[in-house]
Each structure stands twice: as structure tokens, then as C-alpha cells.
Amino acid sequence: MAAADRTSAVSLLGKGFLLVYALFAAFPIYWTLNTALKPLGSINTFPPTLYPESLDLSSFTWVLMNSRAAGSIIDSLIIASGTTVLSVLLGSLAGYAFSRYGDAVGGEDVSFWLLSTRMFPPIAIVLPMFFVFGWFNLQDTHLGLIILYLTFNLPLTTWLMRDFFDKIPYSFEEAAYVDGYSPFAAFRKVVFPLVRPGLIATTMLAWVFAWNEFIFAFIIAGNDVAPYTTIIPTLVLSNQILWNRIMAMAVVVTIPPTLILIAFRRHIVEGMTLGVTEL
């Protein structure tokens, strides 16, 4: 009796805590939306209003219609998608090679070196990169940023994919060979379906990194190509800050990753926990 009471009390307390936490976590998102929908003049009023007293959609119109703002989101989409496709493709091949023929391709040392590139503080190489990209005329191009992000994403995708392939016993492929399947067919029929959750999680991580990157975009980008992350600082003017446009931009650029996350949430959780199905 007392035990049952205690259990339900604990569960109630837990739910209460979760509710408070959910409100706490959701508040910034709510405030972003709230601010984006207010006219600029009523943003800095005190006390702040919890909802826009007069609805103003002009900042959203600006984000979606202004060629610089909308163009920057398209630039970001091109760069993030381009670098993701390349890094996942190359990273999967490299990860497979490391997993299956690790010793033949340098083994642990090389794969650790790959990972160690992620430990390097990126800010330290921003300036040299600026000059190197200048020599190759890669500044202010989509390709330039795609290649640059590849250097950060490829080690990550290689490392992750190696882990996912490691989870699939080599005997699965051998069994397929014995049954008459070519290496390519064995990969397609046996390995690929099993590695798919990991592949999706890896794709997601690579894409999000490129989508959110700011420092290198700021240095390498210019007038022709400007990812959205470089547009937001320009909304901080000398005499005022265009909070409504900043917030509207934030709302719009949160939509693509959110949609992707919702669409693949089951695979992503599976992949993140490295539980590549039940082997």
C-alpha cells in the first residue's frame, strides 16, 4: 500500500519535472517565434509582451522574398547537401575498407589520425585556408565550401561508418559468397540493408554540421555565395539590431533539419546508439 503510494508519487514527481523541463527547453523556441512575429518597434518594450500584440509578418516576408536572404538559404542548402553526399559516399567506402581490411590500410593508426583531425581547433587554420583558397580561386564559390566542409566531415563519416560496418560480422558476406553472390551483390543484399540506420544517422550528422557552420563560411564566402549563417551578423546594424529578421531567419532555417529529424527519427536513434538492428 505504502509502496504503491510511493511509486505513484515518484512517477508523478518525475512527470512534473519533465513538464517543467519541457517548458524550459521550449521557451527559447517560443520566444524566437514571438519575437519574429512582432513589429521591430514593440520588441524592446518593457515589460515584454508574451505574444505579439500586433501581428507583423514582414520579417518572414523578408526572409523568404529578399534575394539576399532567400538566396543565402539556397546557398546553404546546396553546400550542405553537396558536402553531405560526397562525405557520406567517400566516408562509407573508406569506413568499409577500414572495417574489413583495416590492417592493409594502416590499421588503427591511420583511423586514429583521421579522428585526430577533429580534435584540431578549426579557428587556428582559418587564415591559412583563406590564402590557400585564394590561390585556387575557390573563394566565394559553392565548391570551395563543399570541399572545405569535406575536410571536417570526411573523418567523421569514415570513423562512424567504420564502426557501423564493424557491427556486421564478415561471415555475413562470406556466407553470401559461398552461396554464389559476387562481392557487390553480397554488399547490396546483405551489408547495405544492415548498415542503413547507421548510414542515415551519419548523413544527418554530416548535413547538420555543414548547415550550421559559421566561421569558415564567414571567411571563404563573399558576395556571390553566402550561407545563411553569414547573413545573420549583417542584421546587427550600427544603430539598431533587426531582432525580428534574425528571429524569422532562425525559425525558417530550423525547419529543414527538423523535418529530416522527424522523418528519420527511428533510424537516427538506432544509429546514434550504435545499435545497428539486432544482430
Binding site: P169, S171, F172, E174, A175, V178, D179, G180, L194, L279
Partner: peptide, 17 residues
């Protein structure tokens, strides 16, 4: 192995999950 007419049961069975 593809060109040998064999079949094999592996120690870990290698059933496809």
C-alpha cells in the same frame, strides 16, 4: 567461393537478421 559448388554453415550461423 562463388565458383565452387559448396554450401557452408558458419560457426556464428551468419543468418541475416
Amino acid at each position: 567461393p562463388q565458383d565452387r559448388d559448396i554450401s557452408m554453415v558458419f560457426q556464428n550461423l551468419a543468418l541475416y537478421p
